[in-house]
Simulated assay, not measured.
Amino acid sequence: MTGREIDGHRVAVVGASGALGSRIARTLADRGAAVLLVGRDEDRLREVLAGAPVVVGDLGDATTGDRLVAAAQEHLGGLDGLVNAAGVAAFGSLLETPDEVIEEVFTTNVIGPAFLLRRVLPLLQESRGYVVNLSAVLAERPMAGMGAYSASKAALTALDRALRSELRRSGVDVLDVRPPHTETGLADRPVHGQAPRLPTGLDPDEVAARVVRAITDGEADLGSEAFGTAG
């Protein structure tokens, strides 16, 4: 991945109302980026960055990507980067996990991002920009009782690695981020089941700062070991 200066970049942050997404958006803005905020909760989005343009939508809705592209062109004049920090978690054995929960986990964590990227990549090819997808340590080390979630994150990481090769000639960089457990509150609001007892997670401020540093330093991959703990 090419090292990049953030100042002057036009970046869309998906999942910008969440603990990590909001912190990444603010960090990018503090570094001089113009940020487009994307998420499901308009009120929470508008609290992240005063005056920033907002797109309200769900990743499972393919038209969210169309509206993101339109908003980026209207408000930012294009796009240099896309950061996807959206996601949902589910707990429980596969046998105990309803079909609709498995579908929701994969729609939000894999299918939705793929829908989104198909629509946004032409803008990023124009600017020779970058994609950052927030996967998880479970893509590296799947966990019993989190089979659907682990599999969805492994699929997202596989998609990133394939895209990295596909997009090399067009100059679009793809960064896959797999942080250990982080105190985002995601485990407290799963779409199914109850989280097992987890160790104290990483500070989301530190994780957000590390992600932005990876962009500026041109890192091609950010595995769990890059965060200083096995998690």
Rank of each mutant, 00 (worst) to 15 (best):
159 L>C: 03
87 G>D: 10
5 E>W: 08
162 A>G: 15
39 G>S: 12
200 T>K: 13
83 V>S: 01
9 H>W: 12
144 A>I: 07
76 L>D: 06
163 L>F: 07
161 R>D: 15
144 A>W: 08
147 G>R: 06
62 A>C: 05
151 A>R: 06
147 G>W: 06
88 V>Q: 05
129 G>A: 05
90 A>S: 14
76 L>C: 04
74 E>F: 01
120 V>L: 13
116 L>H: 04
24 I>Y: 05
67 R>T: 11
89 A>H: 06
190 P>A: 05
104 E>R: 15
86 A>P: 05
64 T>Y: 06
103 E>W: 00
89 A>F: 11
59 L>I: 03
140 E>V: 01
147 G>T: 07
122 P>Q: 12
5 E>Q: 10
160 D>V: 04
9 H>P: 00
170 S>Q: 07
91 F>N: 04
177 V>Y: 08
59 L>D: 00
9 H>V: 03
167 L>D: 14
130 Y>T: 01
46 R>T: 14
56 V>G: 05
218 G>W: 13
30 D>I: 03
77 G>R: 10
60 G>L: 10
190 P>E: 02
209 A>L: 11
199 P>Q: 02
173 D>C: 11
5 E>F: 05
44 R>F: 11
20 L>W: 09
142 P>D: 07
33 A>C: 10
10 R>Q: 12
13 V>P: 03
135 S>F: 01
132 V>K: 00
170 S>T: 14
175 L>K: 13
162 A>E: 12
123 L>P: 04
2 T>A: 15
5 E>Y: 08
79 L>Q: 10
197 R>F: 07
144 A>V: 01
228 G>I: 11
194 Q>S: 13
101 V>M: 04
65 G>K: 04
208 A>Y: 05
151 A>N: 08
171 G>H: 05
140 E>F: 02
10 R>Y: 12
108 T>C: 09
142 P>G: 01
73 Q>A: 08
76 L>P: 04
196 P>G: 08
201 G>L: 00
66 D>C: 00
228 G>Q: 06
179 P>E: 02
227 F>Y: 12
60 G>Q: 02
7 D>K: 15
161 R>P: 02
137 V>M: 06
218 G>I: 05
104 E>V: 13
176 D>V: 14
162 A>M: 13
214 A>Y: 11
203 D>W: 02
192 H>T: 10
13 V>I: 14
195 A>W: 04
